[in-house]
């Protein structure tokens, strides 16, 4: 079975793809941090962050339709907040919308969540879609992210699709025997499937570890890939980080 990898556009060629993963990681995390710490009642810094995201997205030559689809992951969270807005009692004038009314404070919360979520998630999508996963993990390691985290992430990336395949095969075998998991009493069958998936994964983990030990693995991952930051990497990192932080700091001074 074929799957969409989270880094399926990471082999495109563009100025953004060519950058060192460390430069991209630092610059985009700077935008995220600046964004999530900016107070919601000033809107123009958000315009700066959004502009940065749009500029990078445009330079990366990623299809916009792809970016938009990926951004939908934040929709449920924003939706939950949106549903709650009429029940929030915030400051400011109240707007009557017929059956319910909303306060300006409530809308501000919605705007806050939506803007921050969208910008942060776009940054992460840009990072993961313009960098091959392996390079990204190496980049994080070079930034002294503990190897434990990068290793767990790398294994997850490698094996999640195998687990999805296994689940899919189980589901097919189950459905060919005319199972319709619609009712509450079917929950037992689903529970068994989850349990058996868990056991299979654990057994696989055991075998993977054996195969690694057979090749002399002793608990520490060897490294050998060395990359260097060049002028464009420094420039990208400097300009993006500086712009994002400038937007954030000006708000602070006012």
């Amino acid at each position: 079975m074929r799957h969409d990898f989270i880094d399926r556009y990471s082999r495109l060629e563009s100025p953004v793809h060519a950058l060192d993963p460390r430069a991209k990681a630092i610059a985009l995390f700077a935008v995220i941090i600046a964004c999530v710490t900016t107070p919601a009642n000033v809107w123009w810094p958000y315009a700066i962050y959004a502009a940065l995201v749009l500029i990078i997205a445009n330079a990366s030559r990623l299809p916009f339709s792809y970016l938009l689809t990926r951004m939908l992951v934040v929709a449920p969270f924003v939706l939950v907040v949106a549903v709650c807005v009429p029940f929030m009692h915030g400051a400011g004038p109240t707007y009557d919308l017929g059956v319910f009314s909303v306060t300006q404070g409530g809308l501000l919360v919605l705007w806050n969540v939506a803007a921050k979520a969208l910008i942060s998630v776009s940054c992460l999508i840009l990072l993961s879609s313009t960098t091959e996963f392996a390079d990204l993990m190496h980049g994080f390691e070079r930034l002294h992210v503990p190897q434990f985290f990068t290793t767990v992430a790398a294994f997850m990336y490698r094996y999640i699709f195998i687990i999805i395949d296994e689940a899919e095969r189980m589901k097919r075998a189950r459905d060919s025997r005319n199972f319709r998991g619609r009712w509450l009493w079917h929950i037992k069958v689903i529970g068994h499937m989850v349990a058996s998936l868990f056991l299979r994964s654990q057994e696989r983990a055991e075998r993977v570890y054996q195969a690694m030990s057979a090749r002399g693995f002793d608990g520490s991952f060897p490294r050998w890939k060395e990359t260097h930051m060049h002028a464009p990497d420094w420039a990208f990192m400097g300009i993006i980080t500086a712009t994002a932080l400038a937007g954030r700091l000006v708000v602070l001074w006012k």
Binding site: E132, A134, M137, R158, Y159, R204, V208, Q210, A211, M212
Partner: peptide, 8 residues
């Protein structure tokens, strides 16, 4: 799939 665990 037990033997090959790396991204590349």
């Amino acid at each position: 799939d037990d033997q090959l665990f790396s991204p590349t």
